[in-house]
């Protein structure tokens, strides 16, 4: 029996918002440590890695490891039926072929349950090597989303270059070119407004703007986003999910011809 109860159904709604652009379906791997998801988009250019720790749930029970193949379009439709302040419970019998979502209104006067068929998805897991990144940038998530949106109007690629002074985002195309430079903030009163750069060596990499924009669908989950870069390895874009976990997006760089 698997049962996970979350008081804030908005977390699960936002997680679906954050992944449904990139993935049509994904396997939720549930164990007693929590729920993990790892899936590449169809083009194998980007990967989503999500982790929700069991201790972040109000109630979590997983008698035996269970992998639930979810159609994310259907799951999104079901989660749209939950109000933000509803309590959501996901449950499934061992080796079940359906999963049930129960939404309870705060005053318990309305309880809804939705049963969704599970899919048999082939489990293709990638080994992601632990990496010491040359540059790790932390900036306000809203700022990053704004930069990706503004620059994607100029070209299909964004060049991110990182030095100890700060980070520069550039794009060029038919209408012209654009550069956005963010300097390291010196003393900001609020942590989530800071721009910080931890640099071992300068890095400049090129990425497809449409994937970056897809990643920023996770902006509602966290005030801060972390970008990790090293020469010629995939970019990591990480958003924390409250105290319960994180979403990490990996994006293969574009190689200059």
């Amino acid at each position: 029996m698997f049962e996970a109860r979350l008081v804030q159904s908005s977390i699960l709604k936002k997680v679906l918002e954050a992944i449904k652009d990139l993935l049509n379906e994904a396997t939720f791997d549930c164990s007693d440590s929590g729920i993990q998801l790892q899936a590449m988009d169809n083009s194998h250019v980007s990967l989503v890695s999500m982790n929700l720790r069991s201790d972040g749930f109000d109630k979590y029970r997983c008698d035996r490891n269970i992998s639930m193949g979810m159609n994310l379009g259907s799951m999104t439709k079901i989660l749209k039926c939950a109000a933000n302040e509803d309590v959501v419970t996901m449950k499934a019998q061992d080796n079940a072929d359906t999963v049930t979502f129960v939404f309870e209104s705060p005053n318990q006067e309305k309880v809804s349950d939705y049963e969704m068929k599970l899919m048999n998805l082939d489990q293709e897991h990638l080994g992601i090597p632990e990496t010491e990144y040359a540059c790790v940038v932390r900036l306000p998530a809203g700022e990053f989303a704004r930069i990706c949106r503004d620059l994607s109007q100029f070209g299909e690629s964004v060049v991110i270059s990182c030095t100890k002074e700060g980070v520069k985002f550039s794009s060029a195309g038919d209408i012209g070119s654009a550069n956005i430079k963010l300097a390291q903030t010196s003393n900001v009163d609020k942590e989530e407004l800071a721009v910080t750069v931890e640099m071992q060596e300068p890095v400049t990499l090129t990425f497809a703007s449409r994937y970056l924009n897809s990643f920023t669908k996770a902006t509602s989950l966290s005030n801060v986003v972390q970008l990790s870069m090293s020469p010629d390895v995939p970019l990591v874009v990480e958003y924390r999910i409250g105290e319960i976990g994180h979403i990490r997006y990996y994006l293969a760089p574009k190689i200059e011809d």
Binding site: M40, S43, H44, V45, S46, L47, E124, H125, L126, G127, I128, P129, S157, T206, A208, V233, P234, Y250, A252, P253, K254, I255, E256, D257
Partner: peptide, 14 residues
Amino acid sequence: GATQGRLDSFFKVL
């Protein structure tokens, strides 16, 4: 122009 890489050339399938 720049060619889009794929993750398969960076991460191995377990």
